[in-house]
Design a protein around this nucleic acid. Structure first.
Length: 364
DNA sequence: GAACAGAAAAC
DNA sequence: CCTCCTTTCTGTTC
């Protein structure tokens, strides 16, 4: 029996929250920026509302460029923790409509989620559409925000359907419409295909999804490897068995940031590293986990990225140790190149729950 | 198999 | 000249 899956996608989430908080922003172009450590100079657009999009602004665009394009737009810094709280409320609303007592639910980032309603809807797409409308009504009433919903027989189709009518839309793709829905789409629109794959496919004369679906799996496997090759063939054919399943909590906690200016002076680099370490470690504490691996990332002036990691013999949650290892790795990276550094990052991984056991500090 | 580095993707 | 966070896969090495 075929499934009915909904993908709920919040409309211009960060900017919409800011508009809702401050109604005087309504009607203006609102651009929410992720500023780096470089003031006006650095930073990229995180989200912007439709007035800003009409002016040609889009996410990932450098903030200074957005400002040049539309100087009278309102530029706001991201308030991630606040958006996360709003997100939590919305996710609970969405989850309440998912099959199996909310179990067939999958959060996908801060502003979108999948839910399966095969059982609740009794397999009826009209009923599924009513559920989508109820979710939209609840989110609007309780949080004052709009969202767009895609409905399809699997996650890929639902996900792609939700972006069909935006903002504030519902798009249903029946099983017999899947082919027509996908056929003429550029391959880059397929969820899971990014810039690199798009270009590789273009080199093979594959531009739209039907070109891809028509290729021999073996050929795709020979170019992209077994897993990716079969995935491409299946996805392009509209087939996706991936279940809606809640992600287990993340296995990594990390932070990255830009230096105020490119440098390779160790005191400057290490003081930023200290800030990042503080943040990472407080998240580790908040989640009461231990970590077994530590990774330091360096992005040079020329944007070349290098990572170096170290694995501990046992999971630990000591700040001093984290700091020591990170300093050690960073020292090696600084010694291994004469190029200035633009950004750095630190990440702990291989996380283990601290169930019951005390930290060293508590022990004494 | 584990550890490590890098690539790719999406948020 | 460009933000930040996480996951997943691939290739290499031991």
């Amino acid at each position: 029996m075929s499934r009915i899956i909904l993908h709920v996608d919040m409309d211009y989430f960060y900017a919409a929250i800011e508009e809702h908080e401050d109604p005087s922003l309504k009607g203006k172009a609102v651009v929410v920026c992720m500023y780096s450590n470089r003031g006006e100079e650095g930073g990229a657009v995180s989200t912007c509302n439709y007035a800003a999009r009409d002016a040609g602004i889009h996410s990932a665009m450098p903030c200074r460029l957005a400002k040049a394009v539309k100087p009278d737009a309102v530029f706001l810094p991201v308030r991630k923790p606040f958006y996360s709280e709003v997100s939590d409320m919305i996710m609970e609303i969405i989850r309440s409509y998912a099959d199996n007592d909310g179990e067939l639910f999958e959060k996908l980032g801060i502003d979108e989620a999948f839910l399966e309603v095969t059982t609740t809807s009794g397999g009826d797409l009209d009923k599924a559409q009513q559920i989508a409308q109820s979710i939209k009504d609840d989110v609007k009433e309780l949080e004052g925000l709009t969202c767009s919903v895609g409905i399809g027989p699997n996650k890929i189709i639902a996900k792609m359907a939700s972006s069909r009518q935006k903002p504030d839309g519902i798009t249903v793709i029946r099983e017999d419409e899947v082919d027509g829905f996908l056929r003429k789409m550029p391959v880059a629109k397929l969820w899971g295909i990014g810039k690199v794959t798009e270009e590789k496919l273009a080199g093979m004369g594959i531009d739209i999804v039907e070109d891809l679906a028509g290729r021999d799996v073996q050929e795709l496997i020979s170019v992209f490897g077994k897993i990716r090759g079969t995935w491409l063939k299946m996805a392009a054919s509209g087939i996706d068995d991936d279940p809606v399943k809640e992600k287990t909590s993340s296995d990594q906690i990390g932070r990255m940031a830009s230096l105020t200016h490119d440098t390779r002076k160790s005191d400057l680099v290490l003081s930023l590293l200290d800030e990042l370490l503080d943040d990472v470690f407080s998240k580790v504490t908040a989640r009461s986990v231990s970590f077994r691996s530590i990774t330091v990332t360096v992005i040079y002036s020329n944007f070349k990225t290098v990572t170096k990691s170290h694995t501990l013999n046992h999971p630990m949650a000591e700040k001093a140790l984290l700091r020591e290892v990170s300093y050690q790795i960073m020292g090696e990276l600084l010694d291994s190149s004469t190029v200035n550094i633009r950004r750095i990052g630190v990440r702990v991984g291989n996380l283990h729950e601290n169930k019951g056991q005390k930290t060293l500090a508590e022990f004494f």
